[in-house]
């Protein structure tokens, strides 16, 4: 049998038993206990591997989920099909960040930059690091710059974004609701700007916060610019607010979607059993 049980204790030195990990995988733990156990799991690869076994064995045995119309699944399916089409031999293709523009890479990008990236991804083109811009969106959006880098494109367009409320709305909405890889376009007639926001990736940081990396592009009469930044959302249990990484202010609170395997209230009866 596995010796893994003794490797991982909780903060009081208690072991985290297989029974508790199985109960988490089976949706049998009360919400608060589940949350604290999950926080431990993302900090500990050994524990995560042990937990994965219980999720995996369950899923291999489980029946199909009941079919129901689901926008999220439709989006994933569309992305997958797009990636599959792109995967096939013909010209590798990146998603353009600019609507109709076709290319996410500014013409002025340094030669050393993203060309080296292996293959098309169905996410929006991963952050072209060498071409990252300092995005001056902090003022209007409550987000400050997540990362700065070489400026390419038209700096004027980026600077102007702080006067475009539509960009604010699009960014807040993208961070809260948009799955990675999806692009949210906006136009602001008042500021004579248009652009798009795409969340590139989502990660859980060590302290439990959710980090979403996004790309934003702006098109003005004078040209266009794009860049990337990251925003952080506090761990579950605290008010859900996005902050820029590493610093910034907040937008509206967000209640994270709660997930349970089945739509049942947490079972109290599982609690005492799970404590053993």
């Amino acid at each position: 049998m596995m010796t893994g049980d003794t490797r991982t204790g909780d903060m009081n030195g208690h072991e985290i038993s297989d029974e508790r990990l199985a109960a988490l995988a089976d949706g049998e733990l009360p919400e608060a206990e589940a949350a604290s156990l999950r926080a431990r799991i993302v900090e500990d690869v050994d524990l995560a591997e042990r937990y994965a076994l219980f999720v995996e064995t369950r899923e291999l045995l489980a029946p199909e989920p009941s079919a129901e119309a689901d926008e999220g699944l439709d989006r994933l399916a569309a992305a997958l099909r797009g990636a599959s089409a792109a995967e096939q031999p013909a010209a590798p293709r990146r998603f353009g960040v600019i609507e109709g523009g076709g290319a996410s890479q500014p013409a002025a990008a340094p030669a050393s930059a993203p060309a080296a990236r292996p293959a098309p991804r169905f996410r929006v083109a991963a952050p072209a690091l060498a071409a990252c811009l300092a995005l001056a969106v902090g003022g209007a959006l409550g987000f400050s710059v997540g990362r700065s880098g070489t400026t390419t494109g038209t700096a004027g367009g980026i600077a102007a974004i702080s006067g475009a409320p539509a960009a604010d709305v699009a960014l807040a909405s993208a961070l809260e609701k948009t799955p990675s890889g999806e692009r949210l376009a906006w136009t602001d007639d008042g500021a004579k700007l248009k652009g798009a926001v795409s969340v590139v990736s989502t990660h859980r940081l060590g302290d439990g916060r959710l980090c979403r990396e996004y790309e934003i592009s702006v098109e003005a009469a004078t040209g266009r610019s794009s860049g990337s930044a990251a925003a952080l959302r506090p761990a579950a249990g605290r008010p859900r607010r996005w902050r820029a990484a590493p610093a910034g202010r907040t937008t509206r609170p967000h209640r994270g979607e709660r997930h349970r395997r089945r739509d049942r209230a947490p079972r109290r009866r599982g609690r005492s059993a799970a404590g053993r």
Binding site: A52, P179, T202, R204, G256, R261
Partner: peptide
């Protein structure tokens, strides 16, 4: 089930 977060799960 693995990550406990719907957004992260989609990613």
């Amino acid at each position: 089930s693995l990550c406990g977060d719907a957004t992260l799960a989609d990613d």
